[in-house]
Simulated scan of single mutants.
Amino acid sequence: MSDSLFGGLQNYFNSTAPYFQTSLSLDKIVQYKNGSFSSMEKSLKGGFSHHHGFDIVNGMDLTHKLMSYIMPILNQRLTSIYSDLISQNNYYLNQIRNLHIIPEISRLKSISEFIKGIHDDIQEISKSDRLSIANLTSLQGMKIDLKEIFHSAIARLEQLVIPSNFEPNEVANSYLVARFSLSNYIVSLVFECILSGNIDDNSVIRLESKIEECLVTLNDITDKLSGSLEQLKRYNSQEIYNINFAQWSYSILQSTNQINNLNNQNFNIDQIQYNTLSYFDINLEKKRLKEFMNSRHSLINNIKIIEDAS
């Protein structure tokens, strides 16, 4: 989990009486009055029979074995905290309808399926260093892809809000691509920490800073886009007023078509603003991160090492 926890466990095991492993049950080994065990096997009458011997286990070995049991359970708990965000991301992805960006959508769907696979199989992945490293390497490559897709979507948005280029479906789809990319980037940051084992306090504090930066970035983009759309709507309304005021210079059919087009644009702007744009709840995400941090400690605090009765 962390250097401090691992070191603490190792020091604990090394500071107590030596631990050993043997194929004999404890009731067949000679035990002294002070509770320690001999390397002699008991005879049928309870005395010494013959030397059996056993292997001393050092603190590091014990710590590794203990952590191999703990980490899959802990990682499952940590990934489950982000289950609803993964579902939310997939919802946004399914809203995208744009034939012009099929390669981007296909890549996003592949990344989404991969992240969902890590979420579902994290216990099995955590049992194998090779699987953890392989998934971590793939995830780090996908983080780069998500950032590239995000920046491409933002570049499109900047052009699409120009009155002469305005296409409502293109604006909505590009925004959803940007939101999905950055939101899944956040999940990738979390899973990267889990797979790499960097979930100590300092690592989680750095993770919190990165996530908050992403949330602020997307909320700023949402705010800027909403402002640009509102400005376009005012521009359209002014154009409608100008056409009505100078209707004598237009044919009736021409002025009617222009006004209808501008009204349709304003209707589509309202649809984007009310049905597509959405802000990240930063307080909610901070609460999620707090749960992430607390879960590590609460699970460790509840570990009890008991004697196997079998």
Score class of each variant (00 low, 15 high):
S138L: 11
M142L: 14
D145G: 10
N89M: 07
F37S: 01
S36A: 13
D129V: 07
I149F: 15
T63E: 11
S83M: 11
H151Q: 13
Q140V: 05
I101M: 06
L108Q: 03
K42C: 14
I101W: 07
N90S: 04
I125Y: 01
S110P: 07
S36W: 13
Q140K: 11
I133D: 03
Q140T: 04
L66S: 05
I86Q: 04
H64T: 00
D121V: 07
K45D: 15
H151P: 11
S68H: 03
E148G: 14
D61K: 04
G47D: 06
N58I: 09
L78W: 14
I86C: 00
H64W: 00
D84R: 01
S87R: 05
G59C: 06
F54T: 09
Y32Q: 04
S106K: 13
N75Y: 07
S110L: 14
I122G: 06
F37M: 08
T137D: 06
Q123A: 13
S36E: 11
D121P: 11
I115N: 09
Q88V: 02
I125A: 02
Y32N: 06
D61Q: 11
S83E: 10
Y91V: 00
I73C: 03
R130Y: 05
N98Y: 15
Q123E: 10
S152V: 15
G53P: 10
I96P: 12
G35P: 04
D129G: 08
R107D: 03
I133F: 07
E124M: 04
K109C: 00
Q95F: 05
D145T: 06
H151S: 13
D121R: 14
G35S: 02
S126I: 04
L66K: 03
K127V: 02
L78C: 08
F114I: 05
I86S: 00
I96A: 06
L139P: 03
F48R: 13
S112H: 00
I122H: 09
E124C: 01
I86D: 00
I122E: 05
S39G: 08
I118T: 13
S112I: 00
E104W: 15
D121A: 13
I133A: 09
S138E: 13
K116L: 05
I122S: 12
D61G: 06
K42F: 12
Q123M: 13
R107S: 07
G47Q: 11
I125N: 00
S83I: 02
I105Q: 07
K116G: 01
H52I: 06
G53M: 09
P72Y: 05
E124D: 05
F37C: 04
